[in-house]
Amino acid sequence: MAVETLREAPPAPEPPVPGPLALFLAFGKIGITAFGGGLSGWVMQDMVRKRRWVSEDDFLAGLAMSQALPGVNVVNLAIWIGYRMGGGLSALCSALGIVVPPMIMVSLFALVYEWLARFPGSARAIEGAVAASIGFMIAMGVRVGQRSLHRVATATVMIVVFVGVAFLKLPIVLVVAVLAPISVALAYRREVADAR
């Protein structure tokens, strides 16, 4: 009886875990609507805020690793989220979702580029779409930044990384290589202290 119940109603995670096709479609939708770079902001808005597939903690861990490893950040992030949702196939479908539909879009754009450029408003409209898209990154920065502001240690790390990359124009690899170990060591000390 108990076994039967289990089979018919698997412990329903709340909200439901998306399958490979749902992941492909969700990432594909982001891929063909997100203009101007900074796609991880869209992923957060869609999958963390709206659909609640991924927790903010898990998203952030994945994002940090995506940035630390080589590769396009949002593709790495799709692999992270996909794998966490449902293993290898889901990871593959997520990655294909964020690459293949935009690849088709960019080819279409290349075909109509010269024709499109004849319309006087087209460039201006795209500037507007890009500007609105940067808002996704800002929204994510504000949300994520607030969390790190709670502690002096995390706030300091965040500000040093921000200033180093944005204003001192230091290479990202260098900044991450220096600050990530420090930040992780501080977090480890907190973990040990919390466990006591």
């Binding site: 940090a64 920065g141 994520v144 969390r147 965040m158 990384v161 180093g164 944005a166 991450v176 990530a180």
Partner: peptide
């Protein structure tokens, strides 16, 4: 530990 690094990179 990586979360504040990610936050800085996002900003």
């Amino acid at each position: 530990g990586l979360a504040p690094v990610a936050a800085g990179l996002i900003l």
